[in-house]
């Protein structure tokens, strides 16, 4: 009980700081990210969302309207805005330890 408490606290801090965008380059980490396709894509999407929280400043609008997988490691996030939809495309890598890193490789706009 006592030995797991600090670890749980660390996990909470990690999750909260990720949500607040305080972690620097967006990444998720852990063995679960290697477990299967669902967990891997979930880890990638979480890392992408953390990056959007940190870097996307036009916080009005309708929020995220779609997340589309383009390839095993690439996703495009659609964000609804007045007059347009912003399309943010990310590429992810998952290393042997299950650490996920994402990099924004494209910003596009669909005008309305």
């Amino acid at each position: 009980m006592t030995s797991t408490a600090p670890r749980n606290l660390a996990m909470i801090i990690l999750v909260l700081s990720g949500m607040l965008g305080l972690l620097g380059p967006a990444h998720a980490t852990g063995k679960r990210c290697q477990m299967n396709a669902i967990e891997r894509s979930k880890c990638i999407i979480e890392a992408i969302l953390a990056d959007i929280s940190r870097t996307y400043t036009q916080v009005g609008g309708g929020g995220i309207s779609a997340i589309k997988q383009n390839s095993t490691t690439s996703f495009t996030v659609s964000i609804a805005q007045e007059e347009r939809t912003d399309l943010l495309t990310y590429e992810a890598t998952v290393d042997a330890k299950g650490k996920v890193s994402v990099r924004k490789i494209g910003e596009d706009t669909k005008s309305r």
Partner: peptide, 9 residues
């Protein structure tokens, strides 16, 4: 380009 792109705001 697309002048509705987010940078244009």
């Amino acid at each position: 380009g697309d002048t509705n792109a987010s940078n244009c705001y």
